[in-house]
Design a protein around this nucleic acid. Structure first.
Lengths: 254, 254
DNA sequence: CGGTTCCTTGACGCATATCAATCTGTGTGG
DNA sequence: CCACACAGATTGATATGCGTCAAGGAACCG
């Protein structure tokens, strides 16, 4: 059954360029066209939407809930790639890779998902330049985060990876927010950071020496510069306090 | 100075869907338009084309030579992302990320490079659907290989990563070729696989127990199935011998 | 020939995975 | 309301695999 335009909110609250959305800048007509060919479905936690090796038939747009994408090798070990919330998509890139999906997709917390047929996506890229640009922005953003992950796992210690993760969390909230919560289950985050839950737990304790206290999933920073130590050129670029006093290690100070 | 259309070969010999090219399917007029706004330049080995944090002004198309993209963290450790040869591009994705480049680009072996202004790229995506599709295919291919790299570093041992690398090399040549050469300097490959040259060297020796002999950069496989042990769903998909006899571990055998 | 670069080999130590036990919170059923 | 079960998180003890450091060898080029 086709989806009614009014059924779902297509634009998540924050509408900043760092969070490119699939529907950004599209007019009413385009939206209706897309929704008309799509379907909306609800899935329970644990449900596998795509297995590694499947050829995807839909692009998935998360309306509600939490979904993860991951790769697993032959002995069953998993490497979490992304954890998606409302407003994010997956299989967007895979559709253009052609052939079997290199990743699997699983629902983590019960989710409502908009499913857009892959054939429509491919055709619509040819018809609508704005849509192409949206897709390019989304895919390149995934690529970027994969590169950061990759560098982290290769060159950084678990502690540094955690620090970098917290720093990005902090920057998302705005540099004034000294309190935040871990957005997901710890074991899930641990896997995404390429470490075991045990190492994750130990790394959290070590964070105290940087002035960051963790109680359950609550994080309290001593001051706004506690995480500067983990900054790099990417985060410095979006840091509103870049190059200010208080941070000795800012990469902008060259 | 604008580039003459006849100066460079824009299509590398192999024209298969797994090697998407920037100029695939474009007509003469489009090619002339692109080349007219671009410049061709030659660089020596070691030359830095883009540093991490720079905002890219060009998309780079490698006409000749070897170029690598990598990320380095604050203490100078490098993680090689890709190693490009003739017909490949970089900064293609970065242009659409907006802002500073998360990666650096360096010439490894003296290279002739076509430089296309980023502003042109962005505009041309809006004007030419074929070009959008080309870019999407290229970027998603990069993304895919980043994901494979990521999984490898997180879940696999150095030996397995090397095996997977050799397998892909083998499949590129066609499954009949039992002889091949390492395409790059060993230390470069080692870094791309996320290990030290020492570990790489030891892993190469271990390969003997799988029926693969390495002499200098020459690789000799005992038979076409020697590398099957390292296969996964991605490689199985492009393996012409998939599911045949000889390979006990083929992921297609479910 | 000497110098340089790259690769290889060996010895060593540390960091992180692994394994196992305990603890905490949460929900369920009697 | 308590007892129990279960999942997730924590903590501790252990071991091993990879990086590091240092030395030696091989190929290349002047």
């Amino acid at each position: 059954m086709p989806v009614n335009h009014k059924d779902i909110k297509l634009k998540p609250p924050e509408n900043n360029p760092d969070r490119p959305g699939l529907f950004d800048g599209l007019d009413e007509k385009s939206l209706e066209l897309i929704l008309g060919t799509s379907q909306l479905q609800t899935f329970d936690a644990g449900r596998l939407l795509i297995q590694q090796g499947d050829v995807p038939e839909y692009l998935y747009y998360v309306v509600e809930g939490v979904v993860k994408t991951y790769r697993s090798d032959s002995d069953g070990k998993e490497a979490t790639i992304r954890i998606l919330r409302a407003g994010e998509t997956c299989m967007d890139a895979v559709i253009f890779m052609g052939g079997a999906s290199p990743i699997a997709v699983q629902v983590v917390e019960a989710a409502k998902i908009l499913m857009i047929p892959e054939i429509f996506i491919r055709k619509y890229v040819l018809a609508n330049p704005q849509f192409s640009t949206n897709l390019l922005r989304i895919v390149t953003k995934h690529y970027k985060s994969a590169l950061q992950q990759l560098e982290g796992v290769i060159t950084k210690t678990p502690l540094q990876r955690l620090g970098y993760y917290l720093l990005k969390l902090h920057l998302e909230k705005g540099h004034d927010a000294l309190d935040m919560d871990l957005p997901f289950k710890k074991s899930l985050i641990a896997n995404q950071l390429g470490m075991t839950p045990e190492s994750f737990s130990r790394a959290l304790k070590e964070m105290k020496s940087f002035g960051i206290d963790i109680d359950q999933e609550h994080i309290k920073m001593k001051d706004a510069y506690a995480l500067c130590h983990f900054c790099d050129t990417d985060t410095a670029f979006i840091c509103t306090d870049a190059d200010k006093q208080g941070c000795d290690t800012c990469p902008h100070k060259n």
